[in-house]
């Protein structure tokens, strides 16, 4: 299982990646959308965890781009806004939104559910 973490809040995803690694989950980090796309070209991920608001390419935009590269990729959005907004461009699948601050056990649970559902 391999996860791609994309957020401009560097310390946040660094810590998250370290903690996931402790729990046996391999996680790559990308601080911008461009970096994430570059990493996705050379590796295959099961789940991408995207921040919605990022400078440059935003979360939903990045999802579309990654989706064309890897149609089988699963997405989880993370947002600082307490309220979870529905994305207008979601396709047939429902997007999953998690709010910050993020509980790591809940994230792992969600990731596993996604993979099992596939």
């Amino acid at each position: 299982m391999k996860i791609l973490l994309v957020d401009d809040e560097q310390k946040f995803i660094n810590m998250l990646a370290k903690r996931l690694a402790l729990r046996g989950i391999e996680a790559d980090t990308a601080y911008t959308g461009e970096e994430a796309l570059k990493k996705a070209e050379s590796a295959v991920y099961d789940v991408a965890v995207l921040d919605i608001k990022m400078p440059g390419i935003s979360g939903p935009q990045l999802k579309r781009k990654l989706f064309t590269l890897h149609p089988n990729l699963n997405f989880i959005f993370v947002t600082g806004h307490g309220a979870v907004e529905k994305s207008e461009e979601d396709g047939s699948e429902k997007d999953i939104y998690l709010s910050k601050p993020l509980d790591i056990d809940f994230l792992i649970e969600t990731v596993q559910e996604l993979i099992q559902a596939r």
């Binding site: 310390k11 600082g80 307490g82």
Partner: peptide, 24 residues
């Protein structure tokens, strides 16, 4: 307030993960 919540949630997420990692 909505903007402020967003601004606060980001550092809170950092605190959360950092503290979580230290606990780990």
């Amino acid at each position: 307030a909505a903007g402020v919540a967003h601004e606060i949630n980001n550092p809170l997420a950092v605190i959360n993960q950092t503290a979580g990692y230290m606990k780990d």
